[in-house]
């Protein structure tokens, strides 16, 4: 069984990393979006393998089902599937590569200097990741972060509505006068 588990994990890991790379490298925005969806799905399967079906399915519903669908919608709506060959922001590639190295460095540091696990890993019950437990945790121990996130999302929604609202008549007139 452990062998099968390792093969299974290796396969998922390869797909996850491969799809992430594919998303970065592909020059067609639609394909990039699809690679990202595949990546989300693979990560969801990993969650499932870890015994957390609720989180896995939430991952699919929220990321693959809602967010990436919206991305795809915008890409097809704007007809922006062909990425430009040049850099939209000057020098952003160099900055991106630099940041990637910083990230790798962080990971390496974390792996070498993290607290060594002492003693056996605490066993988690089958109900650990059940919706009920997650709900209880969210509304007791993590109530403050949960509410903060909710508030941030709400303000983002309000902001989005304000941005798309048509300008009022008076301001339009003013801008026309300035013209």
């Amino acid at each position: 069984m452990p062998v099968i588990g390792t093969i299974f994990y290796a396969f998922l890991a390869i797909v996850a990393v491969g799809s992430a790379l594919g998303m970065l490298i592909n020059r067609n925005a639609i394909y990039s979006a699809l690679f990202l969806v595949l990546n989300f799905a693979t990560v969801a399967v990993l969650y499932l393998a870890l015994g957390a079906p609720f989180i896995a399915l939430s991952q699919i519903t929220v990321y693959a089902g809602a967010i990436m669908v919206l991305f795809l919608f915008v890409i097809t709506l704007l007809g922006a599937e062909k990425l430009p060959g040049y850099e939209p922001i000057k020098g952003h590639r160099i900055v991106a590569i630099g940041l990637a190295f910083v990230f790798i460095a962080e990971l390496v540091l974390f792996f070498f200097f993290r607290n060594q696990v002492t003693g056996p890993i605490p066993l988690i019950g089958p109900e650990f990741a059940s919706p009920r437990n997650i709900g209880v945790l969210m509304f007791t121990e993590y109530l403050l972060p949960f509410e903060v996130v909710a508030f941030i999302l709400l303000s983002a929604t309000v902001g989005a509505i304000m941005l798309t609202k048509p300008e009022r008549k008076s301001t339009t007139k003013l801008s026309q006068q300035q013209d």
Partner: peptide, 23 residues
């Protein structure tokens, strides 16, 4: 124990085929 979430997850990804077919 997450059957309803499963249904929502599956229905939410069913739009991909249609969007991609259209595009």
């Amino acid at each position: 124990n997450v059957a309803v979430v499963y249904i929502m997850a599956v229905t939410s990804i069913s739009v991909y085929g249609i969007t991609l077919a259209g595009w």
